[in-house]
Structure formats: C-alpha cells, structure tokens
Design a protein around this nucleic acid. Sequence first.
DNA 1: AGGTTGTTTCGAGATCTGTCAAGGTAGAGA
DNA 2: TCTCTACCTTGACAGATCTCGAAACAACCT
Lengths: 126, 126
Amino acid sequence: MSKQDLAVVDLRAVACCTPIAVRPMDAEQAVLVAPMFKALGDPVRLRLMSMIASVPEICVCDLTPAFDLSGPTISHHLKVLREAGLVDSDRRGTWVWYRVRPEAFQQLGALLEFSPANAPADPATR
Amino acid sequence: MSKQDLAVVDLRAVACCTPIAVRPMDAEQAVLVAPMFKALGDPVRLRLMSMIASVPEICVCDLTPAFDLSGPTISHHLKVLREAGLVDSDRRGTWVWYRVRPEAFQQLGALLEFSPANAPADPATR
DNA sequence: AGGTTGTTTCGAGATCTGTCAAGGTAGAGA
DNA sequence: TCTCTACCTTGACAGATCTCGAAACAACCT
C-alpha cells in the first residue's frame, strides 16, 4: 500500500542522527525532519503512534474503537503518519495492518539525545 | 519573563518518560505532550530549538539574522517554544536570552526511546 | 449479490504562518 | 532628567493549512 505513497519522506535524505543539542540543524534537514515531529504534534496521532509502536503490528479495526472519532478521520491521521514515514501499512485480506518504521522512529529519538555538555549553567553558578 | 507565562506546559503533569513504544499513551498524557512535538513540527522552530539547545544560552539578536524572516515572526515562534515548555528566556539589560529546559527536552527524548522488543518481525520470517 | 473494512473526496469551520504597526524596556548621551 | 535609539514583544490582519464528518468509492470475503 504505502509503496504507492510517493509523498512519503525519504529516510535516506534525513541527514542522520546528530542530536540537535550538539550542532544546529541546517535548513534543509529541518525541512525534512519537521514533518515527522508535526505528525506527532496531534494528540490523536500521538496516541495512534504509541498504539502502533507498542506492538509488532496492529489492525485498523483495533485502532478506531479506541477513539471517539469517525473512521475517515482515523484514516486521515494514519495517512499523515504514513506520509511522515513513521509507519507502514499493508492489507492482508479484509484488514489493514499498521506497524512502526523502526529506522524513522530511532532517528527521531537520536535527534533528541541530550548531553549535559551544552546545558544551561546552573543559575546559582552564573 | 517566562515566569508570567501562564499558558506554559506544566512539566510535572507530563506523565513521565515511559517510551511510547513500550506502552500506549493515555489520552490525557497525549494532550499534554503533543504540543511539544507540535512546537518542533515547524522547520523554523526546529532550527531555533537546535540553535538554542546546542549552546548554553543565546541572544535573540543572534537568532533572528539566521532566518529570512521578520523580527516579530521569530518572536512568535519563540513564544510557541516557550509555551510548549521547551525553552526559557529572560531579559538581561537590552537583550533577551534563551536557553533550553533540559527536563522537557530529555522527557521528549525518553518518549521516543525504542527497544527492538516490539519491533515488527522481519518480513522474511513473517 | 450482499456485507464488512478502510480509504478518498469534498466542504465548513478552526488554527497556523507571516507581515506591518504600535507598545514596552533598557542603555547612551545631552 | 529628558530624549534618542536599539531590542524584543504584542495586536491586528490576510492567506494558507489543518481537522473533522458525510457521502461515495474500492477491496475483500462469503
């Protein structure tokens, strides 16, 4: 299914993995990565993502009832997650199954790694 | 300055740190955390955040020239980062200085931690 | 064919991004 | 002290984008 999704983020193009707390991110990389954070920036999508990521895979039929939203709305949110490159899906028989894309998920986490090296000095010592 | 910012996210309320890949996030937590991801979901704010996070602190006067945007626009984006609880600021003399809030930043990173335990099975073995 | 499951299309209302104009705050100089 | 200037934020606004549901569509099974 997502093989036909041409708008999907190309993970190879995401300059990989230097934490943003180590070196300022250049503009092109920011444009590539921001859509991933944006996709997680909605409470419904964040919960969908966590439901998908906490199991090997999950059927849409198990996702939809967890929300007080219509089927089409859930489908839209899932599409956003797919186009951000965070999840993958395929149909098997009647049902459509979603699973996380570990590379994307790990890259995002790596960007947020934080070493105290650049932390603000303690106000007391400043 | 940000002491008067009443809309700022209360970090104590952010159910702390269980990676979303380990356990599905409940609705209330999602509502609290999503604004942080949303704040990083814009290329300009992502770059601002990385510029702030990669040094102990930085003056707005050093942030603005890095973008092809007006002062008020940068100020608005900084306000979004502030209200998301990701950064802090205070005025010292003429200039306003921004610095990262390490607790918030680390919490966000912790949420994205990924253990292969729940990774999708290799398609070959599926 | 008929029923179930998901996605797409389309439209209304809300939210976001950016600019200009105006306001507040602090330092410098007369 | 009074004014001038620099720095940054706020308010008001237009245009773009997002969220969501109703209806239509597509894929699959029996």
